[in-house]
């Protein structure tokens, strides 16, 4: 009974996290984006999976993303402890032991990869394994603390889910899958740099070489514009492929015009103006960037949904 006594003294001791804490370890918000993009990748593919197989594919892709999140929280606990935005995460807050996060991450990685391979095909499982490796080892352990280009290369990890969804259905990689990958890959830098513009002090404190810290905000503004210009051809090209159609092309033209306008506005502003209005334009651009991605993938999905009625696609 002595252990009960110790619990009395410390009711919220380490290793006593609730079920919700373990769910939080899997970064459910990131997971929701992964689920959506993977679902689109799977649905727009020309091959139909059985609903149970499709459900398993999405579930295990999401679980793989969750495993990456847990491993990221295990490795980045020291950074998370410093940054205001991440201080309340289960590991830095002391509700879950780092070893538990590591164990959960490794176990879920193994389960998700093996089950995805069994439910769909080996290539999809291998791609998921590579994505977890890329996010945890290449991005989290290496690039994030080493180069201001961390977001650019690390963005690949977040770009894989629609490709995995496509591969789960078809068993191979094709141009459409590569373009969906490229859309998220090229979208990630302007999206995160806009966020970094108004939460710079946190990255500074955590000594993460975010572009705003190493090159300054003026350079970051220029980078946002350049990467936005590089991003624009990708959704327009994707709209011309079999997964696109007139609707996708219209959505792409409108969204990219607005996105480019926002990037120009960010480029033209200086720190004085931005501080004076509380980074209104940057925050708006960041918010719109989320909508931008959601609507592009929504348009791909809509084309597929409308096709049986003779409306979607070219």
């Amino acid at each position: 009974m002595s252990d009960i006594g110790s619990y009395e003294r410390s009711a919220t001791g380490p290793g006593d996290g609730s079920f919700g804490d373990y769910v939080q370890l899997l970064k459910p918000r990131v997971m929701s984006l992964v689920v959506f993009t993977a679902l689109v990748g799977l649905m727009v593919a020309p091959v139909r999976l059985h609903p149970v197989e499709a459900f398993c594919a999405i579930l295990f892709i999401a679980l793989g993303a969750g495993a990456s999140g847990a491993l990221n929280m295990w490795w980045d606990a020291d950074i998370d402890r410093v940054m205001r935005r991440t201080q309340s995460r289960p590991v830095p807050a002391g509700r879950i032991e780092p070893g538990e996060a590591l164990g959960l991450g490794l176990a879920l990685s193994g389960i998700s990869v093996a089950m995805l391979a069994l439910a769909t095909n080996i290539l999809a499982g291998a791609l998921l394994a590579f994505t977890i490796f890329f996010y945890v080892v290449i991005y989290t352990m290496w690039l994030k603390r080493w180069t201001p280009q961390n977001i650019v290369i690390g963005g690949a990890a977040g770009a894989f889910p629609p490709m995995i969804g496509w591969v789960a259905a078809t068993g191979s990689v094709s141009l459409e899958a590569v373009l969906m990958f490229a859309l998220i890959f090229m979208w990630t830098p302007p999206h995160f740099w806009a966020l970094a513009l108004f939460i710079n002090s946190d990255y500074d404190k955590a000594k993460v070489p975010m572009l705003t810290v190493t090159h300054g905000k003026a350079s970051t503004r220029k980078h946002i514009l350049v990467y936005t210009l590089l991003l624009i051809p990708v959704p327009l090209w994707a709209a011309m492929t079999p997964i696109g159609g007139p609707l996708t092309l219209t959505v792409a033209v409108v969204l990219n015009a607005v996105f480019l306008f926002g990037a120009f506005r960010i480029r033209r502003r200086d720190e004085e103006t931005a501080t004076a209005d509380g980074y209104r334009v940057e925050k708006k651009f960041f918010g719109f960037s989320i909508l931008y991605l959601f609507l592009h993938f929504g348009a791909f999905l809509a084309e597929t949904a409308l096709r049986p009625y003779g409306l979607g696609g070219w």
């Binding site: 619990y7 009711a11 919220t12 006593d16 996290g17 609730s18 373990y22």
Partner: peptide, 12 residues
């Protein structure tokens, strides 16, 4: 006790 509630929730 809160600890037992948390554990029960986790186990469930």
């Amino acid at each position: 006790h809160d600890l037992h509630k948390r554990r029960f929730g986790r186990n469930l």
